[in-house]
Each structure stands twice: as C-alpha cells, then as structure tokens.
C-alpha cells in the first residue's frame, strides 16, 4: 500500500516523462542531418509582434483598426468626448432597449454612469445572487484594456466586477478610457504582468465580440450563451 497514491502518480508521470526525454527530438524545421540549433524561447518571443497582424503606431491608426475590428465582430464601438457624453449615450441605449435593471460594479467610470441611469442597480462587489443578475438587462463593467489588433476587450475578475458580470446579462457594456487602447496582444500581456504579477486575478479574459456560435450549419448566430450585444463606450 502506497502512503500517498496521489503523490505517487505525480512521480510516476514525471518519471515517465524524464525517461522519454532522455532521447532528444530534432528541433522543428531542421531536416534530419542538419546540425540542430538550440531553440531560444526568448528569441522566438521577441519576434512575435513582427509576425502578428499589423497595427499602426499612432493613436489614430489604432483607433481606426479597433473600430474596423469591432464592426467586423458586430460589436458597437462609440468614441465619446467627455464623461457627460458617455452618460448621455448610456441613457440613450437604456431607453432604446427599455432597460429595467442593470448589473455593475464599483469603479471610477461605472459609478457615475450607473447612478445617472436612475434604474435599480445590482452591484457585484460584495457578492450577489446569480438569479438576480439573470434578471438584469445589461452588465456594465470597466476593463483593463482595449486591443486594436484584435478588437478585443481585456477584463479580469478584479477590474470588471467578477466572472459573471461580463457574460450573464444579455448586453455587456464596457466603459473604457482612451489611454486604455493598446496596440497588440504582446502589449496586453505586458500590461497584465506590470499591473498584477504575481497576484493575478483568478480570471483574465479577452472578450472579442459578443457571444457567438456557428455550430448550426456554420451559420453565425450571436448570443449563444453569453451576451447578444457588446457595446464599448470609450471616453
């Protein structure tokens, strides 16, 4: 009888791995016979931005790319000039969709905007009942970044009111600031490191467009399980 079978399996697996790796494998791209060059992970990583889709260097170019990507993804992206305009836009959406209740979390951007809606608000900060959130017409959250290269919104469980707020209500409204618009994915991962490491939030999510599926005849349908609509209001 082994004292700790769980530990034993760990050692068994690692043992098999080490035994297997005692015979080296040719590096990728090398034809047999060519002297194998050492793969340097750092080297590969430094070039990644050069392989990925091109992003312009100016703010305007990033903005234009984000806008194009968002449109292709069927996300609504609106650039606003002031917090007042943002509130007005949010009220306009709330009226157009007849919102009766919204879910949000406490944040410099969301607080003012949600208070101005004059609607019942569920705040996730101190815990909530998912059934209650299910009755909300929209989830309004802040974010960590917008990524021009992919049209993605980067959220975490710390920055965007937990795990469910951005996926449970039928409409996810993201409030962002212009300076949060990043060029590309490598920049987004760099931001995560500087902002959070080593105490990362338990969830980090790149949201790229509203929830979608192509599972029926490869035909695009929005709102498979998550939000049918994604609106990004950037001030």
């Amino acid at each position: 009888m082994v004292a700790n079978p769980k530990m034993n399996e760990r050692e068994n697996i690692l043992g098999r791995i080490r035994e297997a790796l005692s015979v080296p494998a040719p590096v990728p791209g090398a034809h047999s016979g060519e002297p194998p060059h050492a793969v340097s992970e750092c080297e590969a990583a430094t070039h990644i931005p050069e392989w990925l889709p091109r992003v312009g260097s100016t703010f305007e170019e990033r903005l234009a790319l984000f806008r194009t990507n968002a449109a292709e993804l069927k996300a609504d992206f609106v650039l606003l000039d002031s917090p007042e305009e943002l509130i007005a836009k949010l009220r306009e959406i709330a009226a157009a969709e007849s919102w009766k209740k919204v879910a949000t979390h406490s944040n410099a951007l969301t607080d003012g905007a949600c208070d101005a809606l004059d609607l019942p608000v569920l705040r996730t900060d101190n815990g909530y009942d998912p059934r209650d959130m299910e009755t909300c017409d929209a989830g309004i959250s802040a974010c960590d970044a917008l990524i021009a290269q992919t049209g993605s919104v980067l959220v975490t469980s710390q920055s965007a009111g937990g795990r469910a707020l951005s996926v449970l209500p039928p409409h996810h409204v993201v409030l962002a600031r212009r300076e949060q618009l990043l060029a590309d994915l490598p920049a987004a991962f760099a931001l995560l490191k500087t902002k959070y490491a080593p105490g990362y939030p338990s969830l980090i999510s790149f949201i790229t467009g509203p929830s979608r599926t192509g599972d029926i005849e490869r035909i695009l349908v929005l709102g498979a399980h998550g939000p049918k609509k994604l609106t990004i209001l950037c001030v």
């Binding site: 469980s157 795990r163 469910a164 707020l165 338990s202 790229t208 509203p210």
Partner: peptide
C-alpha cells in the same frame, strides 16, 4: 477568426476580494 470570442485564463478559485467564482 482573428481571435476566438472568449480567451480566458483561470489562475485559481475565487480570490479574496473577488465578487464571484
């Protein structure tokens, strides 16, 4: 696709101070 709809990293259960999970 340019990016799949949701790419999500999970680094643990609900952490202190988090709303849910």
């Amino acid at each position: 696709q340019v990016m799949t709809g949701y790419n999500t990293l999970y680094g643990g259960p609900r952490q202190p101070g988090e709303a849910d999970g």
